[in-house]
C-alpha cells in the first residue's frame, strides 16, 4: 500500500484524484495548502506527492524546494500554468514530472504508477551483468531477451519497432534522419518506402511514452530527425 499526498487548493480536484488513485489501490492523503502539505509530509511516510503550484500560504514551488532539501520522493507538479518556462522551472527545481490542467485522468494515473515504480523497484533490476543491455533513464532494452521495459514495466514491440528503438538507444543522444535510420536498420539503400519509418516511430512513442505528444525518451526534432534522449 503506497501513500500518495495530493495537494491542491481546489477541493473537488483533490477528491477526483483521490477517487482515481483509490481505484488503483493507493492510499491518498489530502492537503489544501503548502503548509498543510509539509506538515503531513513530516508526520507520515509518503511515497509520492502530487503538488499544485498556485496555492495559498505556501505555493507549490516553495513546498518543492523545501521537500528537495531532505527528501528524494517523486514529485508530480500539477498546474494550470502550461507555458514552457513554467515546466522548465518546475523540473529544474527538482520535480520529477509536470502535468498541466486540465489533465487526462488516465495520464495522471500512468505518471503516478511510473513514479512509484521508479521510486520503489528500480535499482533492483540490474541483475543481468553479462546480458547485452542498452539503457537510458528507466528505459531498458535487454537484447538477449529482446525485451523492453520502461519503469520496470514490459513493453510489447514489433520486430521493426524493436530494431529502430534498439538502434536509437544504442546511439542515444544522436539525431538520425528518417533516411539514416532506414539505412541502418534495414541495412540497404532507401528507395522511397522509408516514409513508413515516421509511422513506426509514432507507434513506438505511443507504446513507451506516457504522453506521446510530449515524449520523454523518443524525441522528435522536427525537420531534422529523431533521437533517444540520453538520460
Amino acid at each position: 500500500m503506497y501513500n500518495i499526498l495530493v495537494c491542491d487548493d481546489d477541493k473537488e480536484i483533490v477528491s477526483a484524484i483521490e477517487i482515481y488513485l483509490s481505484k488503483e489501490g493507493y492510499n491518498v492523503l489530502k492537503a489544501y495548502d503548502g503548509e498543510q502539505a509539509l506538515k503531513i509530509l513530516n508526520e507520515n511516510k509518503i511515497h509520492l506527492i502530487i503538488l499544485d503550484i498556485m496555492m495559498p500560504k505556501k505555493d507549490g514551488m516553495e513546498v518543492l524546494e523545501e521537500i528537495r532539501q531532505e527528501k528524494t520522493i517523486p514529485v508530480i507538479m500539477l498546474s494550470a500554468k502550461s507555458e514552457d518556462e513554467d515546466k522548465i522551472n518546475g523540473l529544474n527545481l527538482g520535480a520529477d514530472d509536470y502535468v498541466t490542467k486540465p489533465f487526462n485522468p488516465l495520464e495522471l494515473i500512468a505518471r503516478v504508477n511510473s513514479g512509484i515504480r521508479r521510486f520503489t523497484q528500480l535499482g533492483t533490476i540490474q541483475n543481468l551483468e553479462n546480458a547485452k543491455i542498452y539503457k537510458t533513464g528507466s528505459l531498458i532494452i535487454n537484447d538477449d531477451l529482446k525485451q523492453v521495459t520502461v519503469d520496470g514495466k514490459e513493453i510489447k514491440l514489433t520486430p521493426t519497432e524493436y530494431n529502430i528503438l534498439k538502434f536509437l538507444t544504442k546511439n542515444k543522444g544522436v539525431v538520425y534522419s528518417i533516411e539514416e535510420i532506414y539505412q541502418n536498420v534495414w541495412q540497404y539503400e532507401a528507395y522511397g518506402a522509408e516514409n513508413i519509418i515516421a509511422v513506426h516511430i509514432r507507434h513506438i512513442r505511443e507504446k513507451i511514452e506516457i504522453n506521446p505528444k510530449e515524449p520523454k525518451y523518443l524525441k522528435v526534432i522536427w525537420g531534422i530527425g529523431y533521437k533517444v534522449e540520453n538520460l
Binding site: 481546489d10 473537488e12 480536484i13 477526483a16 482515481y20 494550470a80 500554468k81 490542467k101 486540465p102 485522468p105
Partner: peptide, 18 residues
C-alpha cells in the same frame, strides 16, 4: 483568464469522466 478557467474545467472533465 485562461488559467482561471482551467481549474474549474479540470473538475468538470474529471467528474464527467467519473
Amino acid at each position: 483568464v485562461s488559467h482561471d478557467i482551467k481549474t474549474p474545467l479540470t473538475s468538470i472533465i474529471n467528474y464527467v469522466d467519473l
